[in-house]
Design a protein around this nucleic acid. Sequence first.
DNA 1: AAGTTGGGCAACCGCACCGTA
DNA 2: ATACGGTGCGGTTGCCCAACT
Length: 212
Amino acid sequence: MKAENEHKKGLWTREEDRILLEYVRVHGRGQWNRIPKVTGLNRCGKSCRLRWLNHLSPNVKHEDFSEEEEELIIRLHKLLGNRWSLIAGRVPGRTDNQVKNHWNTHLCKKLGINRIKKQKKKGASSSKTESSRVRGRYKLTDNLNIEHLQNSTKMAADQDPAEKSNEDQADSMSYLCNESLLFPTDDHLSLYSPGLIEFLYGHPLDIIWPHN
DNA sequence: AAGTTGGGCAACCGCACCGTA
DNA sequence: ATACGGTGCGGTTGCCCAACT
């Protein structure tokens, strides 16, 4: 029998939260698998990590999504698809789980997107391993080619804005992201054309554009 | 009032990646 | 080269609760 099966599952109690918070306060983040041994908390490391990232971290916002956040998520989803962690990375204070849930429960409805209805009973997981296996993986360091990104976005920026719509630029970026290129951090935002930034954020950003 | 249904969200699962010994 | 532990990710499940019958 695997040890993981001995760990408690389900919703977290206040006391469990308190123990986990105390652990992180003393030891910092990481080494999640040590938590059961160190604290006696009957949760597996993965569960502890998830609880911290999604709920206990001081960086997590717990209030409802604002209109601005929803608009940003919709724009980012148009660009990136279901890359929830990438999307969440550009929505301050929101986790990938929050973004994913909000998209599936609210935004799909708002946008009139049909989702596959969730299967209520067991036996619905047959496609899970398949979807996990087939899913194209990406990671920040995978095929990272800043020069390629720079050239591509510069090409987009060099075009007459009147001739190239933001949606076209978004399509270009979608292609780049599908090619596993990095969706830029704040440090790399300046690689984007002003038009694309405005498309993503709904308003211009105060950025110095190196290729202007 | 009791039972049923469906939405919302927290949490789990399985897989992939990364670093290191 | 490879085995292994730790971590990250997206899809899915299951619980809770309000609305409905």
